[in-house]
Design a protein around this nucleic acid. Sequence first.
DNA 1: GTGCGTGATTTGAACGATCAAACCCAGCCG
DNA 2: CGGCTGGGTTTGATCGTTCAAATCACGCAC
Lengths: 338, 338
Amino acid sequence: MPKAPTVDDVARAAGVSRQTVSNVLNAPEIVKGSTRERVESAIAELGYRPHSAARMLRTRRSSTIGIHLDPYAGGVSGVVLDRFIHAVTERASARGMRMLVYVARTPEEELDRLAELTERAEIDAVVITGTFHGDPRTGWLSERGVPFVSFGRPWGADDLAEPSHSWVDVDGAAGARAATRHALVTAGPRVGFFGWPAGSGTGDDRERGWREAMADAGAAGPRFEAADGLALARKRMSGAFAEPGALRELDALVCVSDAHAVGAHLAAGDGGRRSLPVFGFDNTPVAEALGLSSIEQSPELVAAAVLDLLMGATGHAVRDRGAPAEHVLVEPRLIVRG
Amino acid sequence: MPKAPTVDDVARAAGVSRQTVSNVLNAPEIVKGSTRERVESAIAELGYRPHSAARMLRTRRSSTIGIHLDPYAGGVSGVVLDRFIHAVTERASARGMRMLVYVARTPEEELDRLAELTERAEIDAVVITGTFHGDPRTGWLSERGVPFVSFGRPWGADDLAEPSHSWVDVDGAAGARAATRHALVTAGPRVGFFGWPAGSGTGDDRERGWREAMADAGAAGPRFEAADGLALARKRMSGAFAEPGALRELDALVCVSDAHAVGAHLAAGDGGRRSLPVFGFDNTPVAEALGLSSIEQSPELVAAAVLDLLMGATGHAVRDRGAPAEHVLVEPRLIVRG
DNA sequence: GTGCGTGATTTGAACGATCAAACCCAGCCG
DNA sequence: CGGCTGGGTTTGATCGTTCAAATCACGCAC
């Protein structure tokens, strides 16, 4: 393995100084055209690439962004986050940034990881996902001045008008509203909602969309709930559908997740109504496989927005804090099937 | 933001020299007990962490491993790789390594990414996934002396006896054999196989397992095939089951993937035989949701094996090449459902 | 008493880049 | 003709760590 060429090797080959080579790379506009070309061809000739550790050391920037990898929970969802991570990585790459992934089982453990990564200067910024009420991460990051953007709103009093940090989220209420409206038009007025127990932010937001659409239409429908998980959801709805007439008196069901939707769909099938229109959330492969409608979150759009907030619309480095907290609310898209 | 403490700060606080602090961190055994304690408490006191860029620059090691993120194909599988990446990251973290992810749409693009990452010294090693016949990556990496291990065998002449590089894979034939045997015992002798078109390595390997189990039992069954994708699979089997008696004369079906299995399951349902025992591969959430049996690949075991090959059983740095090429074949596990 | 070996610690240099300031050289003005 | 300006380029210092070699302290044998 021949030693990799350094900036000095290039300088010698091009008959200029170190710094000029550095300038060609970092501030080409200040170098005279003819010398720039000479240096560029020397770079190409030698196959030179700047040694990133040296650059990091001097500039005190790692050009790396950290992101947490959620454990595989074995459930139906999860795909959304995987798509999101992929999209963020792609976007980051296009802006000359790298993505470092880390794992942690609890928020506390995540703070440990983050402390290590930031204090060793391995990352310049963080993308956090799945924010929740009283999330310890946001305050911690703000205090230490670590630039970050969250996929998920702060769930505080004033998310929209005066957010405590930059965030991007999908407008769950709008998604549920779209699904509910579609159901009202195509199936009938008795559209139910199948959600998580109250208090989960995301779930409440989606439920609100259903409520609003129903109120607008002057319609009413039952609300069911179950904790996360396909099996639980199926059991819950099997119970509900066992009530005489319950299944017959329902025109459609909007669900808080694809897991819930699949559970409800299977329960409806068991109850002899395989064709009950069911709407899920996340547009996972399972919903696709079973031909269920679902709300597509467009994690690619979220990813693009996250990087815009983190680096500015065209920047090639993380914005230093001091930049105002902004947010982006992505409009989801209803995918109709079945 | 107060300036982060350096090794010099710690040295001063502990009344020793730079190098002694460094030794406490990197070779504690050569430092006298009393001084070590003094230095350790100074480290704790100041909250010192070594600056990774400086260390990288000097040691010429980044302690970082690169891994490719597959694009979200929208299909049923993909979960296996996500679980694998998560597990690798966890294992790497435990050994003091970091994981850097990158994306690429084609193998050629992947080589570009790898060239950049290795030449800038951002990564010490690579984990590649989804190897195939004539994969350009393995040769490229070997030539350049970049340490790597693949999840997926080399698919060459002498994979097992004389592999051209270290690899870990799941024993697909064993998995299919287990499923077939189980089907023969619980369902009947007419066990079919639903595979990919021949030539895909992985698919051929799994099919071989079915063939062997059938031959051992002196049984015979039909073979079907379809390209990847749930919709295609369903259509193919709907066609097959339309033949008079075809569905009745089948006791069970072993499939090359969960997508195939789900397609076959749905087609069987359409044909009036919802209870046809179907066996998938990958144990994805969809199979779980529909109550189909499937073969669990245990990506966590694969991940552990990959890091063992890359770093040695207990090492804390990537083994330099010169280490012999080894391989590990992980035994998959049949998950019976329905 | 001198020399030697050994374990513990310190010193100087180096890794490869960028920053900050100095330098050089035309061209222009007074 | 001296001084000033400013674009283009070079020089020296620096980021924080580890390597390699030097130094130191101490006990022991001759």
